[in-house]
Computed example of a mutant assay.
Amino acid sequence: MRATLFAALFAVFAAPAASLAADYTGVAKAVDADVIEIGGKRIMLFGMESVERKQNCTIDGKPWECWPAAVRQLETLVSQGETTCRPMRPPDRYGRELALCEINGKSLNEAMVASGFAVARTDETNDFVAAEQRAREQKLGLWQGKFLKPWDFRLAAGILVDRP
């Protein structure tokens, strides 16, 4: 019984590491506020998340189109050079992958959080918590107004699909 349980647990935890894709490198294109594409492969940015397309944000009580602003920020960042992404988990059933990405040796994921246009996903990593705190204190990006965290927006909107 114990041997069977151990074998099952080992299979669950050992199998994903073996099925991670190789790194992706190339010119990246922003396709969402937290998704890029390299060579036709869509990659979600690990450890951070940005607002959803239909999400509403406000500044001083007035509507603000925060999603296009977040996409523009990601476009600006990926325009700085070739991007290399390292998958952190195997693709989910929809083929989506989460990855840590770098441009010119600097973390793209952290740069989005530091700019205030993304929030840290502490269920994935705590690496970007300090960057989020600084952006919040400086009222950068999304923090210059009010917004729901993306997972709260999805829940309120009845969107039940989450990240891989």
Score class of each variant (00 low, 15 high):
G145N: 03
G141P: 02
G47S: 10
V113P: 01
E52I: 10
S50F: 12
L77E: 03
D127F: 00
A28N: 10
V119T: 11
T58S: 15
E132I: 07
T76L: 11
E102Q: 14
L74R: 08
W143L: 13
G145P: 01
A99R: 12
S115C: 09
L77G: 03
F128M: 12
I36V: 14
R121F: 03
M44R: 14
S115Q: 13
A135C: 08
G61D: 08
R42M: 04
T76D: 09
E65H: 09
Q73M: 11
C57W: 06
R121T: 01
I36T: 05
A111F: 14
R72Q: 14
K139W: 04
I103A: 02
V71Y: 03
G145E: 04
Y94R: 04
D34E: 14
L142F: 00
V35Q: 14
I59R: 12
F46G: 01
G95N: 12
L45E: 03
R93D: 04
A33N: 05
L74H: 05
Q80E: 13
D32F: 04
G145R: 08
Q80Y: 15
L45I: 09
L108Q: 02
D123C: 05
P68Q: 12
G141A: 07
L100G: 03
S79F: 15
N109Y: 15
L98E: 03
G40S: 11
R136F: 01
G39T: 13
V27Q: 15
R53H: 03
P87L: 04
S50Y: 11
L45M: 08
A120E: 14
I43Q: 02
R72K: 15
G116N: 13
A114C: 08
S79E: 06
A69M: 15
A118Y: 15
E124N: 08
S79V: 10
R96M: 02
G39P: 11
E110G: 07
D60Y: 15
D32P: 01
L74P: 01
D32S: 13
N56P: 00
E75T: 06
C66D: 11
E52H: 09
V31N: 08
V35A: 10
Q55C: 01
A131P: 00
E65A: 13
R72Y: 07
R53M: 02
D92W: 02
